[in-house]
């Protein structure tokens, strides 16, 4: 479960060669929206050469390809150039049953282990979420609120009240299959307070991570998706008490603790241990 997915443009060497220095848990090299139509080939050659020369070590790398239905020609070129690279998977824009099936067939033919993170950014796909979530090729689903609100002709706002249903739908679908639910990025670059608010909303709703469009946002997102010191201390207390007293139901500081709460404390400590040394 990655807390952050940092987008890096696929055709800017200065950014590409720095992709592992921003402490993001995962990066998404972008061939789609960040790259102009007449520069798609530049992004493909550049990214391929970079990954081959500097295979990613302590970071998961994904590539956002173009859209397999809307733009099959560019997308097939994308796939051919990345299929044998040592990356974790691809991010597929405007995911739906048809595009997932096409991409999965391509990967099956090539016996590729690459995973797919689907970008949920059209209204119709919300009624297929469970089918997508259950697909073995799918590692997670990511909300793309910019495209979604544009299509639906509604405003994007900081409270996110008008995308609450969209957010929660993805969270519930993904939690039911124990896969990643990744929130839409916060797009105001210099507004770190807004970022903190937005990321906290996402973490509270149950997202496992958040897309990030600027390196300076990684720390803020991690902060929201990392348990607070108080939460960690409480979890430690619960786990220790349960172990010491061999008990699964007890009263701790006036609060009732039972098995689900003990399990939750274990999970929290496990997650913290994994990310504890990074911020």
């Amino acid at each position: 479960m990655n807390r952050s997915y940092l987008f890096i443009p696929g055709d800017v060497p200065r950014m590409l060669q720095m992709l592992d220095v921003f402490d993001a848990d995962a990066v998404i090299i972008d061939f789609e929206d960040a790259v102009a139509l007449n520069q798609k080939d530049e992004a493909r050659f550049l990214t391929r050469n970079f990954i081959q020369t500097h295979p990613p070590k302590a970071i998961e790398v994904y590539i956002r390809i173009n859209h397999i239905i809307d733009d099959p020609k560019e997308t097939m070129k994308d796939l051919e150039m990345i299929i044998d690279l040592p990356i974790s998977g691809i991010v597929a824009p405007k995911i739906n049953r048809l595009s997932l099936a096409k991409l999965d067939r391509y990967f099956e033919e090539k016996t590729s282990p690459l995973k797919i993170i689907g970008l949920v950014e059209t209204p119709d796909v919300f009624f297929d979420l469970m089918t997508l979530a259950q697909h073995p090729r799918i590692q997670g689903l990511m909300l793309g609120a910019e495209d979604l609100t544009r299509i639906m002709n509604i405003e994007r706002n900081l409270t996110g009240d008008n995308i609450l249903w969209a957010r929660s739908s993805i969270v519930y679908a993904m939690h039911s299959v124990s896969k990643e639910a990744i929130d839409t990025p916060y797009t105001v670059i210099h507004d770190h307070q807004g970022l903190a608010k937005d990321a906290t909303i996402a973490a509270n709703l149950g997202f496992t991570g958040k897309a990030v469009i600027h390196p300076n946002h990684v720390e803020g997102v991690h902060l929201a998706f990392t348990p607070t010191e108080h939460q960690i201390l409480t979890a430690k207390k619960i786990v220790e008490y349960a172990k010491k007293n061999q008990s699964i139901r007890f009263n701790l500081d006036g609060k009732m603790v039972d098995k689900p709460i003990i399990d939750k404390a274990h999970a929290l400590l496990e997650k913290y241990a994994k990310n504890g040394d990074k911020s």
Binding site: M18, F22, D23, H214, P215, N216, E219
Partner: peptide, 11 residues
Amino acid sequence: TNDPVGIQIAK
């Protein structure tokens, strides 16, 4: 600095 690399070094 607003440069992400500079910010990383500062951090």
